[in-house]
Write a protein that binds this DNA or RNA. Structure first.
Lengths: 145, 145
DNA sequence: CACAATTATATTGTGCACAATTTTATTTCC
DNA sequence: GGAAATAAAATTGTGCACAATATAATTGTG
């Protein structure tokens, strides 16, 4: 019993720890762009497809409206997005990028490689990590109720 | 540039995503014990060593007092820990487990394997994941300023 | 011994996450 | 066409994370 409860034998703790650690490494670079990591993720989703509903963004990031609504309002306050209800269905809020967000993209694209270099990760590290994490993420989705 | 900014080519997003996913899988089991995942981590640290200061807990979990102080007060309110200033140095708050926390341990020890089974992870998944995540965590620590 | 520097924790403020509930709009089905 | 069911966001409330600052005790130094 003792062994099972030791932090070092836990599976989730290293992942939880690494997730926070990497986000902390992103912080100084994202501070320069005046955005947070979750805001950066939302912008990435939008850079891939410039018009999306709150729901569509939420599905891609696994975040609900309770998280997204205030986050999107902050992005709107920074003038990086517009929030506008769809004329044909007023329940839906469509999110679009502003020009300011477009010009941010040039700087944003450089951030991940800066972080990787900063930490000192190799291509092998990244590929190993991504392969196993993606594999397990797929299992978590398949095993849903 | 397009490719670099796609969510699927990001390193951190899968880890951030997996971390939240696993914590969500822990939730139903931890709900039965009436604790959260971060509270569970603090208890694990204490089950390894029954008397520790706030600082010692923070070092093991990489959490600061801004996070730990309110969390520890909630654990105290649940009567799982005691908080007591050290007589010989009043700056230090020593955290000790209550008997109630001791009896929780028997149930807590079973949680991780339930989660692993629930998701459908194999021993190989776990070992692969832990090996690469730990390797990268070590790099992040070595590369600190 | 006094006082500056250090140490340990607490406080404050912002921003996620997520559950539960509410609001408003749209469909569906008699 | 109107009530019930459904759908999309928003709201509310709790609990982390983390930066910045404050508070209080201890230690080091002249």
């Amino acid at each position: 019993m003792e062994e099972k409860l030791q932090l070092k034998s836990q599976v989730c703790f290293p992942i939880y720890s690494l997730s926070r650690e990497i986000i902390n490494r992103y912080r100084p670079f994202l501070d320069e762009l005046d955005i947070t990591y979750p805001q950066y993720l939302v912008l990435m989703v939008l850079w891939e497809n410039e018009v999306q509903t709150v729901n569509q963004i939420g599905e891609k990031l696994n975040l609900d409206s309770g998280t997204l609504t205030p986050l999107l309002k902050r992005l709107e306050a920074k003038e990086l997005i517009h929030r506008c209800r769809r004329r044909s269905d007023e329940r839906v809020v469509e999110i679009t990028l502003t020009e300011k967000a477009g010009s941010l993209k040039n700087k944003a694209v450089l951030v991940p490689e800066k972080v990787v270099k900063d930490i000192g990760l190799t291509i092998e590290d990244l590929e190993d990590l991504k392969r196993i994490v993606t594999k397990i993420l797929n299992k978590t989705k398949k095993s849903l109720p």
